[in-house]
Design a protein around this nucleic acid. Structure first.
Length: 576
RNA sequence: GACUCCGUAGCUCAGCUGGAUAGAGCAACGGUUUUCUAAACCGUCGGUCACAGGUUCGAAUCCUGUCGGGGUCGCCA
């Protein structure tokens, strides 16, 4: 249960009661009404902005609105006191008996604590990675991969019907280059000296197994023929996708749908989607102004088939057909968008690199044109660059052969949990520095370690508890948790569902990482307080009720940590 | 030139879709350990939220403009 959402409802009901009594005018907009944790804990437990938001539309002073609301809120069974403060905040102080119920409920929910139904089973498509199937994933793909996966988990946990998807660009010119590169490796596998890989082809060693596989499967039969390309291309793509899936598996990422661009062209979907847009007047024949910025020698002024994306907020209209009559990449995306709409998705989330920023508006324009304005929500999450460092020194990468750091290199060096946590310890719009030395350091400077250490400490106490042998008639009574440090933790725990919901609505999984850090900090504080004040320790000799209560408390904290880490895709450590 | 992201403490960053006196960590300084994991904790110091306007009860947050930094601007994918 999200207690803040609960009290927002309580306040909304109170307002409606007042409207019913004629004390407040009807048709007030309640959408801006919030209930949130006050900045300063001395103000109470829940801060409500109702009086300030409603004052103007009601034609009253905030104070007058508050005076109407306070009596109704005081009568709520959970409130101990209601005060009006500052510019018109209504601060609710909850009864002491409220918090034990929160802990009890959290304990009962266990690994579901923090989950919600705010998604109402709405169908959401999260498309991420979608790297060209021409080689292994590099470190640049890492962030989007982890981000997309965590966002999908977060949305599932929040009650959305989520599909995790990868779009395979298996139709363009890149995969023909891949095929030519693989064909060279095939000839090499048959014993031919192929020399240097020509410029423009993919030089990486990872294509050698493709050549060998082709040699094994077809012998020399592909040498004499002219139409080897489609066959080699399909085989290469298939093997590259297997490799990419392996790379993703190393981060424990498994997408449910791998959607083929080629299939859209093959089954006529692209032509159909374009025809639909032409019928609605969104596609026309026309000319484009030359591109700004760098001069492009290939630019040619000609009449072409264009999507009227400027009508929907884009900078220029977008071409759908190349001069040779084949579809552009964007044309496939029109059909792909239609396909997603047809599958019933109400939200299309694209996790993209920052270099795709210019693509966002046309994706939104296409969805709007195909489904109607506002019918499907398109949210593009742009992940900024990851800069790699080794002991403070930037890791140099060049695009020449062998000098790029692969996703696998990073995962193999620091482990999947560290990669996942660190990639989510920044909001996606912020650039991220990733230092191999720092992220594996075992100290509080390293947030991954800090959070894991809290979890391990809890597990350690729970192990010790088994040896302590508590009496079987001991009872859990969360009213026994009265210390300031304990209360701080209880408040933090109570905020967990709200953090998850807010992160899900904002599509910002990084909020969970920061929450977990704060939670770990509260826990470490309590732990150390127990060093000075032995009565605050978790297991007390001959005080089985309080010991059992504190152990249950620890289990609730552990659920928060484990559930939060689980959403990030990080495995909690039970010892370190 | 256009679009887009960013600009918050000496450094790295949060800031809960507009709330009350702007928060953490690092660095600096001081303290805590016969103890359930000190791999930790507590305290002090540190701010013109880039700048200028606007919107309103109220702005780091929204709008406009300026400055500074990153990214993008193809019939590529």
């Amino acid at each position: 249960m999200n207690l803040f959402a609960h009290f927002q409802g309580v306040v909304a009901n109170a307002v409606e009661t007042l409207v019913g009594q004629g004390k407040l005018p009807a048709c007030l907009d309640l959408s801006k009404l919030t209930a949130e944790p006050p900045r300063d804990a001395t103000h109470g437990d829940v801060a409500v902005n109702a009086a300030m938001v409603l004052a103007k539309p009601a034609g009253m002073s905030p104070r007058a609105v508050a005076d109407l609301l306070v009596p109704l809120l005081v009568s709520d069974p959970d409130t101990a006191a209601v005060t009006v403060a500052g510019p018109g905040f209504i601060n609710i102080k909850l009864k002491d008996s409220f918090w034990p119920r929160v802990l009890q409920a959290a304990l009962g929910q266990g690994d579901q604590f923090g989950s919600s139904k705010i998604g109402s089973n709405q169908k959401v498509n999260v498309e991420y990675v979608s790297a060209n199937p021409t080689g292994p994933l590099h470190v640049g793909h890492c962030r989007g991969a982890v981000f997309g996966d965590a966002l999908a988990s977060l949305l599932k946990f929040s009650g959305y019907d989520v599909t995790k998807e990868y779009y395979m660009n298996d139709a363009g010119g890149q995969v023909n280059v891949l095929a030519e590169s693989a064909y060279l490796r095939y000839r090499e596998a048959l014993g031919e000296d192929i020399g240097e890989i020509p410029a423009g082809l993919y030089p990486g060693d990872y294509l050698k197994p493709v050549g060998e596989a082709l040699a094994k499967e077809y012998g020399k039969s592909l040498l004499g023929i002219n139409d080897w390309l489609p066959l080699v291309r399909d085989k290469s793509i298939s093997m590259m996708m297997d490799m990419i899936r392996d790379d993703l598996a190393s981060l424990d990422i498994k997408q449910e749908v791998f959607f083929s661009e080629k299939s859209l062209q093959a089954d006529g979907s692209v032509a159909k989607a374009i025809a639909k847009l032409r019928a609605s007047g969104d596609v026309y024949e026309g000319r484009l102004p030359p591109p700004k910025g760098e001069v492009n020698e290939d630019w040619e002024d000609r009449e072409q088939t264009l999507f009227r994306s400027t009508a929907l907020g884009d900078d220029v209209d977008r071409a759908l057909l190349k001069s040779d009559g084949s579809f552009t990449y964007f044309a496939s995306d029109v059909a792909y968008s239609q396909n997603k709409i047809d599958r019933g998705f109400k939200q299309l989330i694209y996790v993209l690199g920052a270099d795709h920023g210019g693509y966002v508006k046309r994706l939104q324009a296409v969805a709007s044109a195909l489904a109607g304005p506002g019918v499907v929500q398109v949210d593009a999450k742009l992940c900024q660059l990851v800069k790699l460092f080794r002991n403070g020194e930037p890791v140099r990468m060049s695009k020449r052969a062998g000098e790029f750091v692969t996703l696998r290199d990073v995962v193999d060096e620091v482990g999947p949990d560290v990669v996942r946590f660190m990639m989510l310890y920044r909001k996606n719009e912020a650039p991220l520095d990733f230092d191999f030395a720092k992220v594996t350091e075992q100290s509080k400077d390293n947030p991954v370690f800090y959070v894991q250490y809290a979890h391990a400490r809890i597990c350690s106490v729970l192990r010790n508890a088994e040896a302590a042998g508590l009496k079987s008639d001991a009872k859990i009574d969360f009213n026994l948790l009265t210390d300031e440090a304990e209360k701080a933790l209880i408040l933090r725990i109570a905020a967990f569902p709200r953090v998850i919901e807010a992160a899900a609505l904002a599509h910002e999984p990084h909020r969970i990482s920061f929450y977990l850090y704060d939670l770990a900090s509260d826990f470490h504080s309590l732990w150390n307080k127990g060093k000075e004040l032995p009565q605050l320790r978790f297991i007390l000799q001959d005080q089985d009720n309080i010991s059992l209560t504190r152990l249950a408390f620890l289990r609730v904290i552990r659920y928060c940590l484990a559930n939060g880490l689980g959403l990030l895709g990080v495995k909690p450590a039970s010892e370190m």
